[in-house]
């Protein structure tokens, strides 16, 4: 019998599972940078706004400032880490050229997208859960709609994982990639109501905040926990869902066409 013989059976789900496992291993190998550092940063925010300044600030009737700010900080951890995972992993693969290892294999575009996305969601939700755990030392939250909280967190994580893929494909340099985070995501998060409800803003700035997509994600997520928000939950959820769908279609189109992946 010949020892070299092509396998007769191929396991259809194995390419997807392998890529997912590889992506998870990738961020776990550098867990100080990918998990611990964002948890420490969020903990410092919690300490500053929860235990020190928070006691002197009141922005929402019936809730302490710590209670108000914790949902936003949890979501910030979810969002930034989901984005960072897909964007850095795909960009580095492109930059170093080892993306060809995937291009020569039978991995399909949907398998590619979902493996990268699920790994990013796992990292985002791990950081979010850790921040949540630490936040219990600073304030008690009412958890009005816990299932909806999970759905909103997963949706936000999915959305920013797609955005990370898109950014990694469009950026040609590491500098350009960091611009997506520093000049788009971070300002939109900070101005989207993580640290204050937009209802306390002057009318012009309040109206302008409604054009900030981040506002709906943060407001919706906070509302699932505290039960109060600036716009109805269905509006926040619908806006987040629509954005996630739009970005998924965009990422799928780029990856399906091999944009900046295939020569």
């Amino acid at each position: 019998m010949k020892r070299f013989r092509q396998p007769e059976k191929f396991v259809a789900w194995l390419p997807f599972a392998t890529l997912l496992q590889k992506e998870v291993r990738r961020f776990l190998r550098v867990s100080f940078q990918t998990l611990l550092a964002p948890i420490v940063t969020a903990s410092l925010y919690l300490f500053v706004f929860g235990a020190t300044l928070g006691e002197r600030i009141s922005v929402m009737e019936g809730f302490s400032y710590a209670q108000f700010v914790i949902p936003g900080l949890i979501l910030m951890g979810v969002i930034t880490n989901s984005f960072a995972n897909t964007s850095s992993s795909l960009f580095i693969s492109r930059y170093l050229g080892n993306i060809v290892d995937l291009l020569v294999t039978p991995i399909s575009a949907p398998q590619f997208i979902f493996a990268y996305t699920l790994a990013a969601m796992l990292r985002g939700l791990l950081v979010g859960s850790a921040v949540l755990g630490i936040s219990t030392f600073f304030a008690e939250l009412p958890w009005v709609h816990p299932f909806a909280t999970l759905v909103m967190a997963a949706l936000a994580s999915f959305l920013f994982a797609q955005f990370g893929l898109i950014a990694a494909l469009h950026a040609n340099t590491m500098d350009a990639l960091s611009m997506f985070n520093n000049f788009l995501i971070v300002p939109l998060i900070y101005l989207g109501g993580v640290f204050y409800p937009i209802s306390i803003l002057p009318p012009f700035w309040e109206r302008l905040s409604h054009f900030n997509p981040m506002f709906y994600i943060i407001d919706g997520f906070r509302q699932t926990i505290l039960g109060v928000g600036d716009v109805p939950l269905i509006v926040s959820f619908s806006a987040t869902f629509a954005m996630a769908l739009a970005l998924f279609c965009w990422a799928a189109l780029l990856i399906g066409r091999g944009y900046k992946l295939r020569l």
């Binding site: 020892r3 396998p7 059976k9 191929f10 396991v11 259809a12 789900w13 194995l14 390419p15 599972a17 392998t18 890529l19 496992q21 590889k22 290892d101 995937l102 294999t105 039978p106 991995i107």
Partner: peptide, 15 residues
């Protein structure tokens, strides 16, 4: 191991 998995090849330690 990762590269074999990308192809959906079941584990073949001898090869």
């Amino acid at each position: 191991r990762i590269h074999a998995g990308y192809y959906g090849v079941p584990r073949d330690n001898s090869w």
